[in-house]
Design a protein around this nucleic acid. Structure first.
Lengths: 135, 135
DNA sequence: TTGTACTGTAATAAATAATATTACAGTTAT
DNA sequence: ATAACTGTAATATTATTTATTACAGTACAA
């Protein structure tokens, strides 16, 4: 997660939540976020697959929220853009070493637990809570 | 944190905690972890700066824990290798947009809160707790 | 006092990952 | 038809991470 995806996704969703009746084009969203429109469209595609957004093609098209901002948890957004374990990747340790042989299993346990805690804490806020701060 | 540093650091410290009286050379540690010895020495240097490890140069030298494993919290290790916010980086959004102008401040708040929760959860386990699983 | 086995550190290279750019076929409104 | 969009893929660029190499410095031990 040393990347821009969470910030980008949340930015997109915040903008959409402010005009929930409007179809906003990707160029407009990209202009506010200051990234390339193709990047925005790719993230929108992901968020759409997760059911947060619906889009319309063609002239006058764009994207809007597919459900109320109050029903989208920040943990849902996190999980939609999640790519790797929160505490990082593992090595490929030496299986001939007693520690090396077992460490990845124990690291995985630790990572899942830490991530479950993170998700629990993010699930306490909705997109609506986050977006409300901007009005 | 989409990297190997947390896993590497915890692996080093686990090995050291198993032979708390011995000076273990970086080549040996690197062999168990299966990374380059220079990488191990660099991480050791960082962990030493944080007071977890002491090293001895020269023949017969190596590293050992500088304090009991029961006094090293997993959150301390996390903080020693931490490089970026847990939820990722921010964009450089358009300041002409009302959302773009404010979003980074709100993201920072969210990141700090999430990170504080993570640290709290990691602080409940010590290196000794983690290493105990291997015996 | 010399050889051996280490550390500490830096410079560079290589590999991997993330992002930007470009392009264009397909869709819809007018 | 034309214009304004989306969806998606291919490629290029940039950034980040890791590996490699090198070597001066330190300490032990014969």
């Amino acid at each position: 997660m040393n990347n821009l995806r969470f910030a980008t996704a949340l930015h997109i969703l915040t903008l959409l939540s402010q005009q929930p009746e409007e179809l906003l084009p990707s160029e407009y969203l990209a202009g506010s976020i200051n990234v390339n429109a193709a990047v925005v469209r790719k993230e929108i595609s992901n968020l759409r697959n997760h059911g947060f957004i619906q889009s319309k093609e063609g002239k006058g098209g764009g994207s809007m929220l597919a459900k109320p901002a109050s029903e989208i948890l920040l943990s849902d957004i996190y999980q939609a853009v999640r790519q790797a374990a929160i505490l990082g990747r593992n090595n490929a340790p030496n299986p001939a070493c007693p520690v090396g042989k077992q460490i990845n299993a124990h690291l995985e346990d630790l990572y899942s637990e830490a991530e479950a805690n993170l998700i629990r804490s993010l699930s306490k806020k909705t997109l609506a809570d986050f977006a409300r701060q901007f009005s």
